[in-house]
Design a protein around this nucleic acid. Sequence first.
DNA 1: TACTTTAAATTGATATATCAATTATTGATA
DNA 2: TATCAATAATTGATATATCAATTTAAAGTA
Lengths: 147, 147
Amino acid sequence: MAMKTSEGISIRFFNNLDIALKSYKQGVQKTLAKNSKDITFDQWQVLSIIKSNPEMKQIEIAAKACKDTASVTRIIELMQKKGLLTREVNKENRRRTILGVTELGEKILIKAGDIINEHSIVALKGIKAKRMKRMRKDLKLILKNSR
Amino acid sequence: MAMKTSEGISIRFFNNLDIALKSYKQGVQKTLAKNSKDITFDQWQVLSIIKSNPEMKQIEIAAKACKDTASVTRIIELMQKKGLLTREVNKENRRRTILGVTELGEKILIKAGDIINEHSIVALKGIKAKRMKRMRKDLKLILKNSR
DNA sequence: TACTTTAAATTGATATATCAATTATTGATA
DNA sequence: TATCAATAATTGATATATCAATTTAAAGTA
């Protein structure tokens, strides 16, 4: 008995999740474009991973950000062009690259980080810390279930 | 006193959310590519909105899916080319388009819907209905806070 | 009616996502 | 050592996201 007219609650859940996240990201992106034209949200994500894990492989960066390695390559390329980071070949293993955040990169990283932090706090207004923790746990479970 | 070394809990929350959703979508997309090569996740999103709301403006579709109108135009264009929907000019108001899901479109809509439904259920395994509802409420609040 | 404003959709340019294919290098092994 | 397999990163092609600009049509107004 098909009954395929309306979606189930699980699909609707992910729809809520999708839309909430998109809306949040769009807000962040707009403020970034106004105040700190030199970086996008995705670039900031990658740059902050590099900053905290200087010797990570690009493959690992991709896994951490849940991005394709191709995307990471291009994001890095753009940031290098803008002078936010340096990229050179590792002489011990010439397949690998050595990435480094420049001074300019650090500045923009912090500036953008403040903006993103501000947005995330506003977006979560009215949600208590306890429930946030609970949700993070559930989100981690979803992540685990999904791969 | 700066202390900008690590991110706050709010940013980390959105990071969990981002990664969980990406992982889920990637899983869906892979299964779709294998079993039902004729549609992408985003196309399915738009197509199902059109199916449930046949006389919606593209602007409204965009708002509902939290997409740019430009994206909607292109997604519709592709689906039209593949024969999943029809598009014609509304004679009462020539700025508007009339969209319609074809028979093929309906078939694929259902097939893809089943796949997506299956994935969403698996992804949420271990999370009780009550907490899902609670989270949906919170997600709606986040959406509201973000615009 | 002529002019301006608003509305709906599209187009252009650039950034990112995805998958496949490719390059370059290293490692393994017959 | 020569060959083959695995690894890291890149490139190509296409889909989507984002913003600005443009097109076309409708509505409002002097």
